[in-house]
C-alpha cells in the first residue's frame, strides 16, 4: 500500500500542493483527477521522490518509503521522453538495469513487452524514428519493465488510440491482479470511471473528494427523472419535491427523501400512465464539476 500523508509543496508564493493525504491500496487502481494546475503532477513527483515535499511524507507498506523501494516503483512522468538516438531495445534494457535488473532479465523482459505491443520488428529502431503512438508504448513499457512494486503514471492514456488504451488497461489490470497498487492521473473521466476502483479528486492543490465511484455517487443528491403519458405539470405542487426541469410529460426532480420519491410514483401511477421512473446517476464528470465548483 502506497500512502501520501499531508504532502505539501510550497513554491515561492504558490502552494501547489496543500496537505494532500490519500492511499493507494495493494491491488487497487486509483484514478487521480483534477484540472490543469490542480497539483497532480507535483504530487506524483513527490510520491516518486523526484521532488522533495515542503511538508508531509510518503509511506510504503505502513513505513516511510526508502530509496530502494522507489527504485522498484514504475513511473511514467508527465514530461516524458527517451534517448532519441538510441535503439529502443537497448535503452529499455538500460532502464531496466537502472531499476536493478540483470542485463539478461532486463533485455528478455523488454523484448517480450515490445513484442506484445507490436514493436517486435523494430527492436533496433532509434526512438526518434518511431511514431508518437509507438514512442508512447515504449514509454509505458519503460514504466512497467522492472517488475514494479507500485505504478505511478501521469496521464498514461493521453495520445493513445482506443485499441492501445485497451491494451494498456489490460496491462495495468495484470499488475493490480498481482497486488500492485496503481495510481494514474487522467483527464479522461469516462476512462477513469471505467477502470478505477477508487478516485482522488484534487482541486487547487487540495483533495476535495476521494473514495470509490459508488461512494462519490452516494454523496451526490438524490435525483429522479419521471416521464408520463400526459402533462407532468402537477408535480410542481407535490410537497417535498423540487423540480429541476419540466418539459411537457417529462420532469427532472430532486425529492427530499426516498419516501417522498416513492409516494410521488404512486400518485403518478394513480393519475395515469408512467413511461419511465428512474434514478439519475451522475457521471463522474458531473460529480467532479460539482466538487470542483464547491
Amino acid at each position: 500500500m502506497l500512502g501520501a500523508h499531508g504532502l505539501t509543496r510550497q513554491y515561492a508564493e504558490v502552494r501547489a500542493v496543500d496537505d494532500v493525504t490519500f492511499e493507494v491500496p495493494a491491488g487497487k487502481m486509483i484514478g487521480f483527477v483534477g484540472g490543469n494546475g490542480a497539483g497532480k503532477t507535483t504530487t506524483m513527483r513527490m510520491l516518486m521522490g523526484v521532488l522533495a515535499p515542503t511538508a508531509g511524507d510518503v509511506s510504503w507498506d505502513g513505513r516511510p518509503v526508502t530509496r530502494a523501494d522507489r527504485t522498484r516503483f514504475g513511473y511514467m512522468p508527465e514530461e516524458r521522453g527517451l534517448y532519441p538516438k538510441q535503439g529502443v531495445l537497448d535503452q529499455l534494457t538500460y532502464l531496466g538495469r537502472l531499476h536493478g535488473m540483470s542485463q539478461h532479465d532486463a533485455q528478455g523482459r523488454a523484448r517480450s513487452l515490445l513484442e506484445r505491443f507490436g514493436l517486435g520488428e523494430r527492436l533496433k529502431e532509434k526512438v526518434e524514428k518511431l511514431s508518437l503512438g509507438n514512442q508512447q508504448r515504449a514509454q509505458i513499457i519503460a514504466a512497467v519493465l522492472g517488475d514494479p512494486l507500485a505504478l505511478i503514471l501521469d496521464e498514461p492514456f493521453s495520445g493513445l488510440d482506443p485499441a492501445a488504451v485497451d491494451q494498456m488497461a489490460d496491462l495495468l489490470r495484470e499488475h493490480t491482479a498481482n497486488g500492485v497498487p496503481v495510481l494514474f492521473s487522467s483527464h479522461q473521466l469516462d476512462l477513469v470511471d471505467r477502470l478505477c476502483d477508487g478516485i482522488v479528486v484534487l482541486h487547487k492543490g487540495r483533495v476535495v473528494a476521494s473514495g470509490t465511484s459508488e461512494e462519490l455517487r452516494g454523496s451526490a443528491p438524490l435525483r429522479y427523472v419521471l416521464s408520463l403519458t400526459a402533462d407532468a405539470g402537477w408535480v410542481r405542487g407535490v410537497p417535498g419535491v423540487r423540480v429541476l426541469d419540466l418539459d411537457g410529460a417529462t420532469v427532472q426532480l430532486e425529492p427530499e427523501t426516498e419516501e417522498v420519491a416513492q409516494r410521488l410514483l404512486t400518485e403518478a401511477v394513480s393519475r395515469g400512465g408512467v413511461r419511465e421512473f428512474s434514478r439519475v446517476r451522475p457521471s463522474l464528470s458531473e460529480i467532479y464539476r460539482e466538487v470542483a465548483a464547491a
Binding site: 523526484v50 527504485t71 521522453g81 527517451l82 537502472l98
Partner: peptide
Amino acid sequence: VEEKQSRIVEILAAAIP
C-alpha cells in the same frame, strides 16, 4: 542537456539517485 531536453531525466532521477 540531452537528458533534460528529451525529458528522460525524470525517469532516470526516479530510478536512481
